[in-house]
C-alpha cells in the first residue's frame, strides 16, 4: 500500500509553515535576495577585472576564512542542538547550547577583527581597488548580520535561562534559530566566492 500524497518520503505529514514566526521568514527571504544581488554583482564585476580580482584574492587570509566558516557551522549546529534539547523539555541544556552558539559568533568577530586589522594596517581600505571595495563591503555587511543574529540569540538565551521555553512552547527559539542559520547559509557561499574561487 502506498503512502497518501500528503505525507513526505519518511511518512510524516509535512508542516505547512517553516519553524518560527512567519515574519522572520519574510525577513530571511528579503535578506537572501539582497545577498544574491551582491554575490552576482561581485561575480560579474570580477569578469571585467579578472587579473585584479585573482591577484587581490591571493592577498586574503584564506585560513581566517576557513576558521570563520568552521565557527559559523559550529554555531549553527549548537543552535540546532538547542532546538533538539528544548523539544525534549531540557530548557537548561538548551540554554547552554545557545550560549555556545553566541560564543562561536564572538569567535567569528574576533577573527574578523584581526583580519581587518591586518588589512587596515597595510593601508588597505574601501578605495584601494574594486576587489577590496567588494571584499570589505560584502564581509562587513555579513558581519553586521552576525551581530544581529547574536543579539537575537542573546534574548532567546535570556528567556531560556528563565525557563521560558518548553517542548510545547519554543516558537520564539525557532524564530531566532532560523535567522542564525540564514547567517551561516550566506557565509557558505561567501567563503568560496571571495576567498577560494579564482
Amino acid at each position: 500500500m502506498t503512502s497518501p500524497p500528503t505525507l513526505d518520503a519518511g511518512g510524516h505529514k509535512p508542516h505547512v509553515y517553516p519553524p518560527g514566526d512567519l515574519a522572520i521568514w519574510v525577513f530571511i527571504l528579503a535578506e537572501l535576495s539582497a545577498f544574491f544581488v551582491l554575490f552576482a554583482a561581485y561575480a560579474f564585476t570580477r569578469l571585467k577585472h579578472l587579473e585584479l580580482f585573482d591577484e587581490m584574492q591571493r592577498t586574503l587570509d584564506s585560513d581566517a576564512g576557513m576558521i570563520n566558516t568552521l565557527l559559523l557551522i559550529t554555531g549553527s549546529w549548537c543552535v540546532a542542538r538547542a532546538i533538539a534539547a528544548i523539544k525534549r523539555n531540557r530548557c537548561r541544556e538548551s540554554s547552554h547550547w545557545l550560549l555556545a552558539a553566541m560564543l562561536t559568533g564572538v569567535g567569528f568577530l574576533v577573527v574578523k577583527y584581526f583580519e581587518y586589522g591586518a588589512k587596515f594596517a597595510a593601508g588597505i581600505d574601501l578605495d584601494t581597488n574594486l576587489f577590496y571595495t567588494f571584499y570589505i563591503s560584502l564581509t562587513m555587511f555579513h558581519a553586521m548580520h552576525v551581530v544581529l543574529g547574536m543579539a537575537i540569540l542573546f534574548f532567546v538565551w535570556k528567556k531560556a535561562l528563565a525557563g521560558g521555553y518548553s517542548a510545547h512552547d519554543h516558537h520564539g527559539m525557532e524564530t531566532g534559530a532560523s535567522y542564525w542559520h540564514m547567517v551561516d547559509l550566506v557565509w557558505i557561499i561567501l567563503f568560496p566566492l571571495v576567498y577560494i574561487m579564482r
Binding site: Y17, P18, F36, A40, W77, I83, L193, M197
Partner: peptide, 28 residues
C-alpha cells in the same frame, strides 16, 4: 534541510530557500 529544519515543511518554503541557493550558485 537539517539545521533550518525545512526537510518536513511544505515544498513551497523549501523550494524558495533551495531555489535561492541553486540560483545563486548557477549565476556564479
Amino acid at each position: 534541510y537539517d539545521f533550518m529544519a525545512l526537510r518536513r515543511v511544505k515544498f513551497l518554503w523549501r523550494a524558495l530557500v533551495l531555489g535561492w541557493l541553486l540560483l545563486t550558485l548557477a549565476v556564479i
